[in-house]
């Protein structure tokens, strides 16, 4: 049996390098030898402001995690969105604001239920958690977006938080917040939608900032360590590109040949 899949050798080597970098950084941070600081992410700081404002105005907070579920390729963004949902739920419970969550994919409903409830428990207000504030609006893009738009408008939400993978519905959601004059905090790693969030929201999380949220909010050394490792893998990519560009210009093809293995 042939264990080597030609054409994918370099990919495997790269996978090993990236994994090694992340694991080493993770263990160093977890061991406490060095726990790096995470740079400021304004969008995440803004969530408390948004929740506070909704509380002052006595109006609810709208929260979605985009069109992601756990059974698609974008689940990592959904999980990041759920992470922030837990944080938002904790803040909402602490301040006594109403938090409305609109899942898109039915498979994340139980997880969202648990995450929100945990947030309320952390704030010491489990009894304030109402599962009916998780509102399922069907698993089809535009009906869902239109449902969120309508509900946000009728409930007159004062804060509009959207964190996860978004597609063409992103501007409809931003429009909903604009109609009600809500403070908008949005983040996605779908680069073809970030521009809407940058333009239409008060604070935007761009790309990987969304995934850094878990580490940023929890201050958990393990999560910070993996983020640190990911930084090293980006540095590796930059190094390979720079060396490769110079070698190719000098007509040395060794690196190109390796990458094509």
């Amino acid at each position: 049996m042939n264990f080597i899949n030609e054409g994918l050798v370099a990919s495997f080597a790269m996978l090993v390098i990236v994994l090694a970098e992340i694991l080493i950084a993770l263990f160093i941070a977890r061991g406490g030898t060095h726990v790096p600081k995470i740079r400021k992410i304004a969008g995440l700081e803004a969530i408390e402001e948004a929740v506070g404002r909704a509380t002052e105005m006595g109006r609810p907070i709208t929260y979605t995690t985009g069109l992601g579920g756990i059974r698609d390729q974008y689940y990592y963004q959904t999980v990041a969105g759920l992470n922030i949902l837990g944080h938002t739920a904790e803040l909402a419970a602490k301040y006594g604001a109403k938090l409305l969550y609109f899942p898109y994919d039915p498979t994340i409903m139980p997880m969202a239920h648990e995450v929100m409830e945990q947030g309320y428990i952390r704030a010491g207000k489990q009894e304030a958690f109402n599962p009916e504030n998780i509102i399922y609006l069907g698993g089809d893009q535009f009906p869902w977006a239109f449902g969120v738009l309508g509900t946000t408008y009728r409930e007159q939400s004062a804060a509009n938080i959207h964190m996860g993978p978004f597609w063409a519905e992103s501007l409809i959601l931003a429009e909903a917040g604009f109609y009600t004059g809500a403070i908008q905090v949005m983040g996605t790693a779908n680069y073809h939608q970030i521009h809407f969030f940058v333009v239409a929201s008060d604070y935007a999380l761009i790309g990987e900032e969304l995934m850094a949220a878990g580490a940023y909010l929890s201050k958990d050394p393990t999560q910070i360590g993996s983020l640190w490792g990911a930084d090293f893998s980006k540095l590796t990519a930059i190094a390979i590109m720079l060396i490769g560009v110079i070698l190719t210009a000098a007509n040395v093809t060794a690196l190109n040949d390796f990458l094509a293995l």
Binding site: P36, I38, R39, E208, W228, I238
Partner: peptide
């Protein structure tokens, strides 16, 4: 390269 550096989180 510069866009990649924007996503460094653990270095100032």
């Amino acid at each position: 390269i510069t866009a990649l550096t924007f996503f460094f989180f653990t270095w100032e």
